[in-house]
């Protein structure tokens, strides 16, 4: 059984256990299950986007516009429901649809325009957060206070619970299952891997790589839209600057989860575990009395150490293999 689980995921799992033990010893309140489950609310947005950015990264691209799509969705939801007084559910669907359109724009320009993913999503990041700010500015709503006054039903999206399990945890699991099935259990998922491993070969074997690449960006945009709605619901007001500081955590989660930034290798399970590690670390350090300003140090070191470990590990293994096989040749 254990041999079936990739070693890296096992290591991540061990880190989670270690985190729970260490932070629990620093502050026994950390062992309270309710607090742990509720802490999911603090990193659910990062995790949701991380799942689908993993797909993008596996195709060999990168999507850094997720954070600003959160802000845009949040503002659109707020404006449609509060200022234009549409039904809240209709406005949520509109907002997520717009997030999908943002992803589509990214995807089409990257796949069909043959421009570097980094550049387009960088421009997209400026553009989408800019549109959010423009929308707020034109509607005359206060930028700092945001749009509030949402209905009870809307705030239940993030703050409610079913049988003692917070909605955030359920949403985490649902989005994880969707991403997992898409990537690991469907033909589409195999195509994503093939595109990432060798785009030309995939193209020659009849895969519409352009469509595959564009679709991953749409998925990533949609997930950012969902994250934006959840975050708005959790915090109770719509603001354009939500998600502005999420660029770093999202990429940390994806890379820490064992996905190669060059594409072709990785998985959603690792991303899920890594996001839990990151989330628990944030809450644990806060409980241990470390100021939130210092958390960047921990995530930065974690990122470097994990990636360095992954890289060195890979080289080490291939070197070992070469030495071993050479010896066998001599022996034979």
């Amino acid at each position: 059984m254990l041999t079936k689980i990739p070693k890296w995921n096992l290591a991540l799992f061990v880190i989670i256990i270690a985190e729970i033990i260490v932070f629990g010893m620093l502050n026994p309140r950390f062992w309270n299950v309710t607090i742990l489950l509720n802490s999911f609310n603090d990193f659910i947005a990062i995790a949701i986007i991380g799942f689908f950015v993993t797909l993008v990264v596996i195709t060999g691209g990168i999507d850094i516009s997720g954070g600003s799509i959160i802000g845009l969705t949040s503002v659109v939801t707020g404006l449609l429901s509060q200022v234009a007084s549409l039904n809240i559910w209709v406005s949520i669907i509109c907002a997520i649809f717009i997030a999908g359109l943002c992803g589509l724009l990214n995807g089409v320009l990257i796949a069909y325009g043959k421009v570097q993913a980094m550049v387009i999503t960088l421009g997209g990041m400026l553009l989408y957060s800019g549109i959010a700010i423009v929308l707020v500015g034109m509607s005359g709503v206060s930028t700092y206070e945001g749009i509030s006054g949402f209905s009870e039903g809307f705030s239940q999206i993030a703050n409610g619970e079913v049988m003692g399990i917070p909605h955030a945890v359920l949403l985490f699991i649902i989005m994880f299952i969707i991403a997992y099935i898409l990537l690991h259990r469907t033909r589409y998922g195999r195509y994503i891997y093939l595109t990432g491993i060798n785009k030309n070969t995939a193209e020659y074997s009849g895969i519409h790589t352009k469509k595959i690449i564009a679709s991953t960006y749409v998925l990533s945009g949609l997930s950012a839209g969902i994250a934006g709605v959840v975050l708005t619901s959790y915090l109770g007001s719509a603001r354009s600057d939500y998600g502005a500081e999420y660029l770093m955590p999202i990429l940390t989660v994806v890379v820490l989860g064992g996905t190669l930034i060059t594409g072709g290798k990785g998985g959603v399970v690792g991303t899920a575990l890594a996001s839990i590690i990151l989330g628990f670390m944030l809450i644990g350090l806060q409980m241990a009395g470390v100021s939130t300003q210092y958390i960047g140090l921990a995530t930065g070191v974690l990122l470097i150490v994990s990636v360095a470990f992954l890289g060195i590990n890979r080289d080490f293994r291939s070197n070992m293999k070469r030495i071993v096989t050479q010896k066998q040749n001599i022996g034979g």
Binding site: L251, I261, Q293, G296, L297, G300, I304, I312
Partner: peptide, 17 residues
């Protein structure tokens, strides 16, 4: 052998702290 994007991103958050 860390990709430069990841490495400098991590250094960015460390230098800020």
């Amino acid at each position: 052998k860390i990709s430069s994007f990841i490495m400098t991103l991590a250094i960015l958050s460390i230098t800020r702290v």
